[in-house]
């Protein structure tokens, strides 16, 4: 990370909402125009949340 980066932790936190939102939007879009329904793809939400938590942890322990 470069010098501008002051608060990696709060960056991960701030980014959490938007990423979740994008994921939900993508899943619904696939539901409506793609081949898979939301009842099939919902576990992707869990995966995204899990990965974000891991990354939060990684950045906080790195700082």
């Amino acid at each position: 990370m470069n010098g501008v980066n002051v608060q990696p932790v709060s960056l991960m936190r701030a980014v959490r909402g938007p990423i979740l939102l994008i994921t939900i939007g993508t899943l619904f879009a696939i539901d409506h125009v793609g081949p898979y329904s939301f009842s099939t793809t919902w576990p992707a939400l869990l995966i995204v949340i899990g990965v974000m938590k891991l990354m939060e942890r990684a950045t906080s322990s790195a700082s």
Partner: peptide
């Protein structure tokens, strides 16, 4: 659903821009 995607992307972009211009970030995105 594309509204959600656009919304989320706009927020994400905003947060990243704030971050890299060194402005304080909101607690929640």
């Amino acid at each position: 659903p594309f509204l959600l995607i656009i919304w989320g992307s706009a927020r994400l972009l905003e947060v990243l821009i704030w971050h890299f211009t060194g402005r304080p970030l909101p607690v929640q995105g």
